[in-house]
Design a protein around this nucleic acid. Structure first.
Length: 398
DNA sequence: AGGTATTCACATGAAACTATTCTCTGAGTTAGG
DNA sequence: TAACTCAGAGAATAGTTTCATGTGAATACCTGT
């Protein structure tokens, strides 16, 4: 294989891409399409900060890939710039609560915020109260309006409860000079339902809901980005429509649509073609799915892999799998690979988690006199099964 | 036949435990004056 | 005597285990006809 060829292909000017960045999730386009209403509403809600008043707390709902984060950051950025020109004191802190080991617990969230504000704090060892105090002292030194954006806040609450939100909203009322308002962003539309009523009422003073994009809107977005990302004329007839249709079918996720477009482009490039075709879209869709599955499997902890492997094996034998059966075989596997088996209680949870991740499907069924179990099925597509088994065997040391 | 009561095989929940990582504190130790 | 070392107490967190309680329909068991 001539590596030089490959490097040349990638370093030289691409026949396909002009600016690949434009299709990446973190890319911030200048124009945000089909979100005028939402942008205006958010801006209107946050605007009082320019006068040094505290904006209402704001809650933003919408499924993944509906542009929530993008819009909020867009408004925030402009607000901050505007405030700087007018010598206002608006500070914006953006935190993504989902990031593992960054901001997914109260302590870490506060540590992260303090870090953003320029104060370093040890990663563990201190009582959380100390951090609340540090945060309080730090922001109350100046009479700023602070807008705290908590992205994927549902993840945080799911993991560590809503105490943090309560405490944060209380901090505001204790501040003497500064003002703190909170913008929460959530993928889960029902998120606020099981929140402490006090937190709920104080946090969702205002709400903005982001509806999913429809196929036409996604088409516009794709076209806009494609104009930046691709060389002229490389996109074949109907390619964009097709991608838009695919993603509209699955709740209008623009992020996935853009990813699909990018992968299609990459396939074209790798195959040294000079046009994106409909067939490539199909191929890209399949590739995207495969990659996602393989990645999530590789990222599983060992015990999860063991559970998954047993289900695959049992599933292949066409046996009806329930929790008990699975657990017995799992134990056998554990002794084979010399791993201490977990309790059934725990395995039951692991099954539920694998179900959530879509690697298998588990339905609880009642068989009356014969008890109650989960009927477990492996949902990994057949074409990947051999590959997956190989990976699992290797990782488990079989 | 119709109506209860049981029973199975787990599910689901809550609390307690274990291990790891890291800070803080104060007692004891050391080196220099 | 000031600086340093080091063990022990506390925290936060993840991942479990232990203990306790819940579930819902297929059966077993009555009951009166």
């Amino acid at each position: 294989m001539d590596l030089k060829n490959i490097f040349e292909k990638f370093s030289g000017k691409s026949k396909i891409f002009r600016n690949r960045e434009a299709l990446q999730a973190r890319y911030h386009p200048e124009k945000i399409l089909h979100r005028d209403k939402e942008l205006e509403k958010i801006a209107a809600i946050l605007a009082p900060s320019l006068k040094g008043e505290k904006p209402s707390n704001l809650f933003i709902y919408g499924k993944t890939g509906t542009g929530k984060t993008l819009c909020v950051l867009h408004v925030a950025k402009q607000l901050e710039e505007f405030a700087r020109e007018k010598k206002g004191n608006v500070r914006i802190i953006y935190v993504n609560c989902k990031l593992k080991r960054v901001a997914d617990t109260p302590y870490r969230l506060l540590a992260h915020i303090l870090h953003e504000l320029g104060q370093e704090v040890p990663s563990t060892g201190l009582p959380t109260d100390e951090l609340y105090k540090a945060f309080y002292d730090l922001i109350d030194r100046r009479s700023d309006v602070i807008i705290l954006i908590l992205d994927e806040i549902d993840q945080l609450v799911a993991k560590s409860g809503d105490d943090i939100l309560y405490n944060l909203s209380r901090i505001d009322s204790e501040l003497k000079k500064a003002r703190l308002s909170i913008v929460g962003i959530s993928n889960d539309l029902l998120f606020a339902e099981n929140l402490d009523p006090r937190v709920k009422s104080s946090l969702s003073e205002e709400e903005v809901v982001f509806p999913p994009y429809n196929a036409l809107q996604i088409k516009d977005i794709l076209e806009e980005r494609a104009r930046i990302a691709f060389q002229q004329g490389v996109i074949g007839e109907g390619v964009i429509q097709k991608i838009a249709a695919i993603s509209a079918r699955s709740h209008g996720d623009a992020r996935r649509a853009l990813e699909l477009l990018r992968i299609t482009g990459e396939l074209a490039e790798r195959k040294d073609m000079n046009k994106l075709t409909l067939e490539l879209v199909d191929e890209a869709e399949e590739k995207m799915e495969s990659e996602n599955i393989i990645e999530t499997i590789k990222a599983q902890p060992q015990q999860y892999k063991a559970v998954l492997y047993t289900t695959i094996i049992l599933n292949e034998k066409n046996m009806e799998i329930n929790t008990g059966e699975l657990y017995n075989h799992y134990r056998r596997l554990c002794s084979q690979i010399k791993v201490r088996p977990l309790t059934q209680r725990r395995v039951s949870d692991i099954i539920a988690e694998l179900d959530m991740q879509g690697l298998l499907s588990a339905k609880t069924i009642n068989r009356g006199r014969y008890g109650r179990t989960k009927s477990i099925e492996c949902t990994i597509p057949l074409r990947l099964l051999e590959h997956v088994k190989k990976i699992l065997r290797e990782d488990l040391g079989l």
